[in-house]
Simulated scan of single mutants.
Amino acid sequence: MANYRIATIEGDGIGPEVAQATIKVLSEACGAAKLDFQMFEGGAGHYMKTGQVLPDDTFKACRDLDAILHGAAGLPSVTYPDGTEVGNDLHLRLRFQLDLYANVRPVKLLPGVLSPLRAFQDGGIDYVIIRENTEGLYASRGAGVLLRNEFASDSLVITRKGTERVAKFAFELSRKRRGAPRDGKRRVTVCDKANILRSYAFFRSVCDEVHTGFPDVEIDYAYADAITVHMVKRPDFYDVIVAENMFGDIISDLGAATVGGMGISPSGEIGDANALFQGAHGSAPDIAGQNLASPIATILSGVMMLRWLADRHEDTSLEDAADRVEAAVGVVLSEKRAVPVDLGGKATCSDVTDAICRAMN
């Protein structure tokens, strides 16, 4: 039996709670011997103690082990001299140093979850946002210009290589899916502002070029402002959306809000050789240590990790385990066995975790 080594960083705030919950659920689904969760330090709390947000041994483990599971990072009070948060630097460094160029954000309405969009119920919203993760406006982080405290400037960076590979990732993902809920069609929607800026017009043109290799997948276009309306009024039209870094960041949070919020929204940051998985939420230090956090986002991120490993290693047992966990989450929510606080219930982090484990048996 294969033994997969998972570099695990609990991080800050609720990070340790949701990470431990995920370890418990995945170990239950796969068997204790299948996954070897190896613990490493990192984040704002570690920076306060040592001056390092990402120690060398943590980085080496993230680079060399089979996958990365991250709880959460960041404490608002812990900042660099320029005012930016220290904790965010953990996954940003991993993102750039490991070239995790595709940020994958599933937007799926889970069974039993009430969407603010009243026209949509179970299965009515099911798409994935692919956010280019290493370029765009965020490529300027730490390199912008502040001149005499009067003028500030950051550069928007779009390259052919960066766009080609993230567009290819999006089209390949669409091929693996069942299409949009509305019509069953596989399609990739390119989100940009090609009508205003040359950089986005270039992004769109490169996506068009990549599309020629995927004639079985439709291509669609939406300006970044207009897509926020469409994601609310007709979310069932979407299958896969691909966007520049900042736009992808913004619309993925909107998508999460339409299916119940950040507490149940998973994410993965994927490159050619490495991948990091974490809930889309932050570290929520105000509820840390109180057993109030929802572990569902991190558990579903663990499901993404199992599927990534299954595909990479052709291990169908991991795919089966992922299906079992996802089904158990659906049962727990739809039957109201343990509804977390952020979804209007009273279940603790431990309650939800235990209920998911029982639902798999």
Results as ranks from 00 to 15, higher is better:
residue 223 Y to S: 04
residue 218 E to Q: 13
residue 189 T to D: 03
residue 54 L to R: 07
residue 253 D to N: 13
residue 23 I to W: 02
residue 178 R to K: 14
residue 290 Q to Y: 10
residue 118 R to V: 04
residue 355 A to G: 06
residue 69 L to I: 06
residue 140 S to Q: 11
residue 9 I to D: 04
residue 54 L to Q: 08
residue 150 E to I: 03
residue 360 M to W: 07
residue 57 D to P: 03
residue 183 D to L: 00
residue 221 Y to Q: 08
residue 316 T to P: 05
residue 105 R to P: 02
residue 304 M to I: 06
residue 234 R to F: 01
residue 96 F to K: 08
residue 185 K to F: 01
residue 95 R to I: 08
residue 154 D to L: 11
residue 323 D to V: 11
residue 313 H to R: 11
residue 340 P to D: 06
residue 355 A to R: 03
residue 58 T to C: 09
residue 326 E to W: 07
residue 349 C to V: 13
residue 177 R to T: 10
residue 327 A to Q: 14
residue 33 A to L: 12
residue 291 N to L: 11
residue 336 K to H: 14
residue 227 I to L: 12
residue 42 G to V: 11
residue 227 I to N: 03
residue 355 A to Q: 05
residue 47 Y to D: 09
residue 323 D to Y: 09
residue 233 K to I: 01
residue 180 A to I: 01
residue 319 E to R: 14
residue 125 I to G: 00
residue 157 V to M: 13
residue 282 G to M: 07
residue 70 H to D: 01
residue 334 S to D: 13
residue 344 G to M: 06
residue 287 I to M: 13
residue 236 D to T: 00
residue 70 H to V: 11
residue 232 V to L: 15
residue 322 A to N: 07
residue 147 L to R: 13
residue 163 T to H: 07
residue 283 S to C: 02
residue 116 P to N: 07
residue 299 I to H: 00
residue 97 Q to R: 15
residue 97 Q to D: 15
residue 360 M to R: 05
residue 227 I to D: 01
residue 191 C to Y: 01
residue 279 G to V: 09
residue 145 V to R: 13
residue 341 V to F: 12
residue 115 S to I: 00
residue 25 V to N: 02
residue 88 N to T: 11
residue 58 T to Y: 12
residue 91 H to Y: 14
residue 141 R to Y: 09
residue 341 V to S: 11
residue 82 D to K: 11
residue 325 V to F: 06
residue 315 D to V: 12
residue 170 A to W: 03
residue 208 D to P: 01
residue 166 V to D: 07
residue 211 H to W: 12
residue 211 H to T: 05
residue 318 L to V: 12
residue 32 A to Q: 15
residue 125 I to L: 02
residue 7 A to I: 12
residue 129 I to D: 05
residue 62 C to Y: 13
residue 181 P to D: 01
residue 58 T to V: 02
residue 164 E to N: 10
residue 117 L to A: 10
residue 108 K to F: 05
residue 192 D to H: 15
residue 357 C to L: 04
residue 144 G to R: 11
residue 274 N to F: 06
residue 280 A to W: 00
residue 109 L to I: 09
residue 45 G to L: 08
residue 105 R to Q: 04
residue 228 T to M: 08
residue 245 N to T: 13
residue 92 L to H: 02
residue 346 K to Y: 08
residue 234 R to V: 02
residue 240 V to E: 00
residue 147 L to H: 14
residue 290 Q to H: 14
residue 139 A to W: 15
residue 141 R to L: 14
residue 342 D to V: 07
residue 200 Y to W: 14
residue 64 D to Q: 13
residue 22 T to D: 05
residue 170 A to Q: 05
residue 347 A to T: 11
residue 261 G to Y: 02
residue 253 D to C: 10
residue 254 L to D: 03
residue 357 C to Q: 09
residue 170 A to L: 06
residue 24 K to F: 07
residue 162 G to K: 08
residue 80 Y to Q: 09
residue 62 C to A: 15
residue 99 D to C: 04
residue 97 Q to Y: 06
residue 216 D to G: 08
residue 303 V to S: 00
residue 76 P to Q: 10
residue 55 P to R: 09
residue 37 F to C: 05
residue 285 P to C: 08
